Amino acid sequence: MSGSLEERLTELEVRLSYVDHTMAVLNDTVAAHDRHLYELRMLMERLRSELVAVRGSLAQDAHDEPPPPHY
């Protein structure tokens, strides 16, 4: 029975090794996705700021502009 127990223990160690490897790969993948999402959030904020600036410049009142040179 000790040979059988040793085989079972070896099998469990092999499985645990695969589980550890899979967890490490998944952790790296999640970390990469987190970095990518952070970059996308920063880009979204920058685009939002630029959109607000463009809307502000387009919404200027025509009375605030100087008259054309021919007037």
Score class of each variant (00 low, 15 high):
residue 31 A to N: 12
residue 14 V to Q: 03
residue 52 V to T: 08
residue 34 D to S: 14
residue 31 A to G: 09
residue 12 L to Q: 15
residue 48 R to D: 08
residue 61 D to R: 09
residue 56 G to Y: 09
residue 6 E to Q: 12
residue 66 P to W: 03
residue 43 L to F: 09
residue 63 H to C: 04
residue 7 E to P: 01
residue 59 A to G: 07
residue 8 R to I: 12
residue 19 V to K: 05
residue 13 E to S: 04
residue 44 M to I: 07
residue 71 Y to M: 13
residue 18 Y to R: 09
residue 4 S to P: 00
residue 30 V to N: 13
residue 13 E to W: 01
residue 44 M to S: 12
residue 18 Y to T: 03
residue 65 E to R: 07
residue 47 L to N: 05
residue 27 N to K: 14
residue 66 P to E: 08
residue 45 E to N: 09
residue 15 R to F: 07
residue 10 T to C: 01
residue 14 V to N: 04
residue 24 A to T: 02
residue 7 E to M: 03
residue 20 D to C: 03
residue 15 R to T: 10
residue 29 T to H: 15
residue 39 E to P: 00
residue 13 E to L: 11
residue 52 V to G: 07
residue 22 T to W: 02
residue 20 D to L: 11
residue 60 Q to P: 03
residue 24 A to F: 01
residue 26 L to Q: 05
residue 37 L to V: 14
residue 27 N to A: 13
residue 35 R to V: 08
residue 70 H to A: 08
residue 9 L to G: 04
residue 44 M to H: 15
residue 65 E to D: 07
residue 21 H to Q: 08
residue 8 R to Q: 08
residue 71 Y to Q: 11
residue 31 A to F: 10
residue 46 R to L: 06
residue 24 A to P: 02
residue 39 E to D: 02
residue 13 E to K: 02
residue 18 Y to G: 06
residue 36 H to K: 10
residue 57 S to C: 12
residue 59 A to Q: 06
residue 42 M to V: 13
residue 15 R to C: 04
residue 70 H to G: 07
residue 42 M to P: 00
residue 57 S to G: 10
residue 55 R to S: 14
residue 21 H to P: 01
residue 39 E to A: 05
residue 54 V to D: 06
residue 9 L to R: 11
residue 25 V to K: 01
residue 5 L to Y: 02
residue 29 T to E: 15
residue 38 Y to V: 07
residue 61 D to P: 03
residue 34 D to G: 10
residue 61 D to V: 07
residue 52 V to Y: 07
residue 42 M to W: 06
residue 23 M to Q: 09
residue 35 R to F: 06
residue 30 V to S: 13
residue 14 V to K: 04
residue 46 R to I: 06
residue 36 H to Q: 14
residue 32 A to S: 15
residue 50 E to G: 10
